[in-house]
Design a protein around this nucleic acid. Structure first.
Lengths: 211, 211
DNA sequence: GCAGTGCTGTACCGTACGGTACGGTACAGC
DNA sequence: GCTGTACCGTACCGTACGGTACAGCACTGC
């Protein structure tokens, strides 16, 4: 079962409507949420919310999963990687990731997860971690290993290479937006930033073998 | 009036005790806070809290300022910068910044600020932004410009150079800790990471002129 | 001694919100 | 038509919390 089929099996269409309403509401309210508002906005009853999702936390968790299932990652070359293919893949990956993390749903969900992290009962932070940085690392790792196998990259620990790539791509953008800075990252901003991140990553971790 | 005298003039000793209690409580509670708990923990009355700080937001704002006034930045060379001095300064700066952002007070305050960002009335996000990324950029900028004047660095926009430095130093550490990942960043971890960040930054933005 | 002041501790109010209960409606299966 | 099911809308409960009021205590200046 592929990811798309799984995500479609996980929630009924009506539930997906409700979860989209949750996302819209969180974006509008800046990350906060009340079950009454959700019910009114989604035209459903609170009782149904609690029947479907258990409690407020379950509703938030389901929303994170629903949002994560909508994010697609760019296709990565599978074998016989050339230098320019590697560069393009890194650039596309950085652009895709920047688009996600600078998007309003991601900002709202991260705000909610961070606000509730540290409180005992909530596993929301874990969920966002798994669907955020960890997912990025997991998807990037094969590309890094392939690049190393092909003699295009050199690095010791893959975690270190990933952290550097994340840093070059995202920089201080995410924390600034989470803190409320008004900064509409345009499509061309993202492209330019992704390009620079890929080039700089290759300058640090690339070998002399190019193309 | 220097920063230290200013911070001492801003709050009375008793007020500073209260603000330290706020910090301790926020660390213990993971970023959340209630005025009643603060009053009990600090052995003061709620009425005094409201008299001194106006409202809950004012209390949080004062706490952020109090914490910020306690953070010292490493002394930077003022003129006639050599390559190794530049590298050391960058390394020390990265280490200092990593120590701050991975510290429990910073995590707690950033959680509170992010959780309340996006709501209309709260200027808490602005305050943390000004005392966080913006302050880092402001203090780093003279060093960058000096390095460029000395022919040791080359960059076009100082914001771009700063964002790259921030990314290389912090990477995904801050967002992961904010999301609740248990990761005690030890002193040696910080030193190693700062060293690598400085070297990589120089590899990207340094000229061939060294030492 | 006494008024004034600044603080503590606590009781209290209003409200927002998580969660539950219940009446009413649409519809599917028989 | 009858029954069960799933859902909507809303009223309601308990609690937590921001903010206020007030009584009492310690201390200062006179």
């Amino acid at each position: 079962m592929n990811a798309r089929a799984q995500s479609e099996a996980e929630f009924t269409p009506r539930q997906r409507e409700v979860l989209d309403a949750v996302l819209a509401l969180m974006v509008k309210e800046g990350g906060s949420l009340s079950t009454a508002r959700v019910a009114r906005e989604a035209r459903c009853s609170k009782e149904t919310l609690y029947k479907w999702f258990g409690d407020r936390d379950g509703l938030l968790t389901a929303t994170v999963r629903w949002q994560a299932s909508k994010v697609k990652s760019p296709a990565l070359p599978q074998s016989r990687l050339t230098g320019s293919e590697l560069r393009d893949a890194l650039r596309d990956f950085a652009a895709s990731w920047l688009t996600v993390v600078s998007g309003e749903p991601s900002i709202a969900l991260n705000r909610a997860a961070i606000g509730h992290a540290g409180t005992d009962k909530s596993r929301l932070g874990d969920i966002v971690l798994r669907n955020g940085p960890y997912a990025m690392a997991r998807r990037l790792e094969p590309l890094f290993r392939l690049g190393r196998d092909e003699g295009l990259l050199q690095f010791e620990a893959v975690e270190d290479a990933f952290s550097a790539f994340f840093g070059l791509a995202v920089g201080d953008i995410q924390i600034r937006m989470l803190l409320g800075e008004e900064k509409n990252l345009g499509k061309d901003d993202i492209e330019r930033r992704a390009e620079r991140a890929a080039d700089r990553f290759l300058a640090l971790f690339g070998t002399t073998a190019r193309d």
